[in-house]
Each structure stands twice: as C-alpha cells, then as structure tokens.
Design a binder for these strands. Sequence first.
DNA 1: TTAGCTATGTATCTTTTGATACCGTTTGTA
DNA 2: TACAAACGGTATCAAAAGATACATAGCTAA
Lengths: 205, 205
Amino acid sequence: MNELFRTLHFFTEPGLQQEILEHGKVVSFNKGDVIVRDGQYVKFLPIVIKGAIRVFQQNEDREILLYYVRAEETCTMSLAAAYFDNKSTSHGITIEPTDALIFPASLINEWQLKYPSWNKYILRMFRSRYDELVGSLQRLAFDHIDVRIMEYLKRKGGNRPGKIYLSHQNLADELGTTRVVISRILKQFEKDKKIKQFRGAVELL
Amino acid sequence: MNELFRTLHFFTEPGLQQEILEHGKVVSFNKGDVIVRDGQYVKFLPIVIKGAIRVFQQNEDREILLYYVRAEETCTMSLAAAYFDNKSTSHGITIEPTDALIFPASLINEWQLKYPSWNKYILRMFRSRYDELVGSLQRLAFDHIDVRIMEYLKRKGGNRPGKIYLSHQNLADELGTTRVVISRILKQFEKDKKIKQFRGAVELL
DNA sequence: TTAGCTATGTATCTTTTGATACCGTTTGTA
DNA sequence: TACAAACGGTATCAAAAGATACATAGCTAA
C-alpha cells in the first residue's frame, strides 16, 4: 500500500484525501484486461497505482497510440468522456498486471469546485498528455523511421539495461509502420552493435 | 459587441459574466501581431471574439502547427503555462485582424473553484484541442500527401465556395512538407479539375 | 515427434516524397 | 520605370518507405 500513499501526495487537502479513500476502491487487473472500450459510457475513473494501461484509438484497420497511463496518472480521455457524459472514443487495455484506484466519475464535478489540488492534478495531466502528443507529431513529421525506432526503444527501456519485450509486429503497430520495415532497421541496428535481438525482445547496448 | 455576448453565453453564472466584463478588456490586434512568444511568461489569457490566432512551436528550422484560436475559444497552451507559472513554449500570432477579450491569468484559479461553467469551458477546450491533434497525427501517419492537402483545403474552405487565400509555401508549412511538393500536387489537382489556381489562392471545384 | 503457429530474415520492385536547381511571372515599391 | 522579392512551374535525381513474396527458425500442444 506504499504506492497508494505515494499517489495520494498530489492531493494536498486532507478532505480530498479522505474522500478518495472513502469513495475509491483499489482493484487489481490482469495483463490484457479491458479498462475502457470504444463506444462505452465511462462511469469510473482510474488512477493507476502500479502497472500501465495502454490507451489507443482504432479506425478500420489502423490503430493509433494515445498514451500509457502509469503510476500516479489518470486517463484524460476517460475523464473528459465522463465529465461530458460522452461515450469513450478510445480503448484502454492493461499491458501488465495493474493496480488502480477506481472511483465514480460523478465525483469529478464536486472535487473541481472544492479542491484546488484536484484541478492542478487534472490540468497537469491534460497538459502533459498534450505535450506528449505534440512530441509524437513532431517526430512523425520530421524524423526518419530509424531514429523513431531508437527513440521508442530508449523510452520504453527507460534508460535501464535489460531486455525490452515486444515483437517486430508490436513495434510496427506502435510506430504506425509495417513489420518488414522494422525487421530491416533492427537488423541494421544489430550490425551496428546498437542492439541485440532475441525472439520477442530487444536489448539496447 | 454582438460577438462579445455570443462568447459570454458559455458562462452561465451571472457572477462569472460580471467578473469577465469587469476584469476583462477588449483589445483589437492587427494581422501578424504577436500574442504570446516562446520563452515568455503568460500574464494574460485571451478569449477570441473575432479573428484567429495561429499557435505553433518552433525548433531549429522546423515548425509545428498546434491549433488556431478562433471566436469563442481560448489558448490552452497559454492557460496551462499561466496556471503553472511556466514560460510559454509556443508562439501565438494573429493571422487576421482579431478582437480578443483579455484578462489577468491570475483569475483562473479563483474561477475554477467558483464557477462550474468555467471548468466546463476549459475542459471542453482541452479536450477538443487534444482531439484535433490526434486527428492530425492520424492523417500524418496514414494519409498520403495529396489526401492531406485536399483535406486541409476543404477544412480551411469550410465547405463554402470561394477562394482560399494561401501560397504554396504557406500550405507546405502547415502540412510540414516543402513548396515543390505542394506545387506538384496542386498542379495535378488542377489537371483533374478538382481545383482552380490563382496567385496566392486556390478555389475548390 | 510432428503439425501449425508465431516470429524473423531478406530479396525485389514500386511508389512516394524530398532535395536541388533553374526558369519565368507577378507584385510591390523605391 | 526598374529592381527586388515573392510566387509558381518543372525537370532531374536520390532516398525512404511500403508491398509482396517466400524462406527459415523457434515454440507449443496434441
């Protein structure tokens, strides 16, 4: 429960902390669980304590990654959908075992008017999601695919040594390209001793 | 001043309307005026009444368009910067003569806690900026440049007949490509009788 | 062990886009 | 009017990326 308290530190008002503990419920999800589904109304808002939710949109055969919800973060798409009583336009699926604090979306309204730190939290969330997306747009617009792959691997690896588990196909989906292109570039990286490849994983050198 | 009242209708609480009129100031800008500059602290928040502000980021020689602030809208980047007391990371420049309601950014905090309709306005703003950006990302990732040009023209033209005033170079900047590419594709459109070209303008057929 | 699935390697071809260079035309203004 | 700057047309070349096809390797379950 250490992580729970770490998460709570954003919410400086004792009243808010109490409300969160009172109305919130800690739920454990398995890898691959669906948290939100496109077209569904959002009744509950999650704040992730441990793990990660992958949030993405899907049109026809195309898929576009919006963001990952990680520890201490919430899902801005869910928040907005809930707030405006809209159906969700994205999917949210856990990519690893995940614990989240879940509470009724109906509380958002009240909290906004009562707790400044809640507003700060939400606005910071929106802002950083927006910045992330601008970053993606920029990289997509101006960087070549090899740079984008390397950037992605570094970010995913979090600058720590160790294997990063994803297939060429996964990578292609994340970056919006095709498997063949990924294989081609990764092979080149391998020749240049920038990475080591395994079945279903990559290691940065 | 008709437009001013149209803008105000978002703010349903009489108290908020009164505060806006009291603390706000209507300012007229010329085309090309700089509203916010990268690296500058944001002290005032604009709500556009008439006209449009182009908000974009610039790194080295690259430029990336974020959004236009049009009538009844505000600049979410400014808002976030002001709220967190950060310097702006974007530029905002009017692309036509523009009237805006300007008020001290320091009021944001209070209004959030007092007026639900202000919160609603802000969140809707953030949400739609985010959605716009996702759209751009999607088109950039999956559409070919000819489709993107046509989409852009249609949006800019607002499905009305009439000329759309921009040079090939402008278009190239907006779409993150080069002038030659634009000229090439527009020529093709002209051959296919999809558009008519003029110096500094295009007309959809 | 074998069949079947998933993951990866790679060759070939085509398309799209970008880079560069040079041209003529229009427009604004000194 | 003359000159510079902005605008647009076009040719040539190169690079990047996608499409397709097929081969091989590892993993797993019957």
